[in-house]
Amino acid sequence: MSYKTRYALLFLAVPFLLFTLFRNLPIVIAFIVSLLDWDITGKPVFVGFRHYIALLGDDNFRRAFLNTVYYVAGTVPLSIVLGLLFAALIEARFIRGKAFFRTVYFLPVVCSMVAIATVWSWIYNPMFGLLNQLTARIGLGRHNWVADPYLALPCIMAMSVWKTIGYNMIIYIAGLKAIPSTYYEAASIDGASKTRSFLAITIPLLRPVTLFLVIMGVINSFQVFDQVFILSQGQLQDSTNVLVFYLYHKGFNELSLGYASAIGYYIFLVILGITLVQFWLNRRHE
């Protein structure tokens, strides 16, 4: 083995060890814990797949799963469509001050979700909130927003979409810049309208970008937690119970670590399954 190889292995060993210690090992340990009945202080008892089976009959888990699917279905497509729309608008020739708009729309992405959720909790405040002032003025009445079981999750979804649009927009702008202008020139010579060019050239050529955003969006949305925790004030509620929040509740409020780990593995399996389906669909289209 040459000294270069030895040095390369040495340098690789450091991140490998850190990843193994802080990422891979906890994943393996979490699986082992999911097979145990353990409340931190007591002696762990091996229960096999009992937690996984119990979860299938758990009303709260079912509700959390459905709420999460609702959240993913409501946020991912909307934030992608709006991200593309904003990117196309900002990249349009007639728009001046592109850098300003890019900065403004990207700003929520770099802000902490906790800070954003706290600000939005005041916007949604049923007594003193900005949104109610606005809706009351235009004759739509006042609502309880996040304190209304039917509106709570859509309110959280709206806030999440607002925060995500900027990220999707920037990725789409990068994708738009990568499309050669000759395609549009050729389409223009052939008499294609702007809309036709957008539908026939832009969208198909952005498919890899869209796939990336959909996969990342689904993965992130399935792990929604911070905004739910802040806006529900850390309380488990039927209306805003989502998978990771339920995991947190079982693990850290009720100290059912085995049960919480099993929820974590269900989330992993669901995300893995959806991602594989997305890849398969994309390959079929190609």
Binding site: F128, V146, D148
Partner: peptide, 18 residues
Amino acid sequence: PPPLVAQQLGGALFPANR
């Protein structure tokens, strides 16, 4: 107020004379 409103408004209503 309904329970979730009461929970969200927390201690703000009483000192605000509401």
